[in-house]
């Protein structure tokens, strides 16, 4: 069934160092912006995430966005949260997404609706992210719906992703939960944005101790931070993100802050590549997609490997 595998999965299996990007769908009913962003990412990432109503703000659906990027020639990783749909809607959307040629799925809890533009909405969470992962896995491996009923034909066969946060404490709990996600069926991980490499390194040590790096592909999340101002803002206001002072200072001192931002990100990726057990990097440059090619190039990860016969096309 190898022809069914996503490009992402195939590259991991071939031992390539994988690069993924991220696109946030718009707050309007058009795919032109998504396709535009996808063009920037084409040939420099192996696949791109499409966020699912991130921070609980209504946006074009991640599945529809996935189709737009397929049409632009990029492989999608569709994100799915547990906030807005019950298990009926989730499974229905999974069938729909797979039927459109979407093969990578990233399962998350989702930000609480109180952060978004509809804070008075109901809070679904019929299942949590681990249960979601298990549902997707059982659909694939056991050919059953969550209720146990058999899927007679054409079961969705997603390459299942999950997220890990190396920075929340207690530390061990994070690794525990990662293991739990693997047990549930997660095949690859994307981490939170990493600035504090030392801490990430320590976390990876724990991951390796439990052998988790051999049970799932781990991608480190990075973000080019455009300016000292943005960095300072993130340091102060984005909870759960550790932004080292040196980075803010470095950006501040730079003549060309954008060039320095690229430089920092490139250095980070190079260091990450040296950490044992890390199989790829996930570059989150939402709103600054056009910078991704030069980052990937400077790291020396271009050209991206091609997979013969794995042409992307909308069905």
């Amino acid at each position: 069934m190898s022809e069914n595998k996503s490009r992402l999965q195939t590259l991991f299996e071939q031992g390539e160092f994988v690069v993924t990007g991220e696109i946030g769908p718009p707050k309007g009913a058009t795919g032109s912006g998504i396709r535009e962003h996808a063009k920037h990412l084409k040939n420099c990432v192996d696949a791109t995430n499409l966020t699912d109503n991130q921070t609980a703000i209504v946006r074009l659906s991640s599945i529809a966005a996935g189709l737009h990027v397929i049409q632009a020639g990029v492989e999608p990783i569709v994100q799915m949260t547990c906030r807005d749909r019950n298990r009926i809607a989730i499974q229905s959307d999974l069938l729909g997404a797979y039927s459109l040629g979407i093969k990578n799925l990233l399962c998350l809890s989702g930000d609480h609706q109180s952060f978004g533009n509809h804070p008075t909405a109901a809070n679904v969470f019929d299942v949590d992210s681990i249960q979601l992962i298990r549902i997707v896995k059982r659909m694939k491996d056991e050919k059953v719906f969550a209720c146990g009923e058999e899927i007679k034909s054409d079961e969705p066969r997603f390459f299942i992703g999950a997220v890990a946060n190396p920075f929340a404490d207690p530390f061990e709990v994070r690794v525990y939960r990662m293991e739990k996600k693997i047990n549930a069926g997660a095949q690859f991980f994307q981490t939170q944005i990493i600035f504090d490499l030392e801490r990430f390194d320590r976390w990876m040590e724990l991951v390796r101790e439990r052998g988790l790096h051999e049970r799932a592909y781990i991608m480190a999340g990075v973000m080019p931070v455009k300016s000292a101002k943005v960095a300072a803002y993130m340091q102060k206001s984005v909870s759960g993100m550790i932004v080292p002072d040196e980075m803010v200072d470095r950006l501040k001192k730079a003549e060309d802050q954008k060039a320095e931002a690229v430089e920092i990100c490139v250095e980070q990726i190079k260091q990450i590549m040296k950490i044992k057990g890390v199989k790829g990097v996930h570059i989150m440059a939402v709103g600054w997609e056009e910078i991704v090619p030069s980052i990937v190039e400077k790291v020396g990860l271009l050209p991206r490997p091609q997979i013969p016969g794995a042409a992307l096309a909308a069905v």
């Binding site: 547990c82 929340a168 909870s239």
Partner: peptide
């Protein structure tokens, strides 16, 4: 806040929930 049965979610920080001023119960 998300009635998660296999917690905590990624929003848990220093024992606090990402939502409001409440403790992360999974912590």
């Amino acid at each position: 806040s998300k009635r998660i049965l296999n917690g905590p979610c990624g929003g848990s920080q220093n024992g606090k929930c990402e939502v409001k001023d409440v403790d992360c119960i999974w912590d």
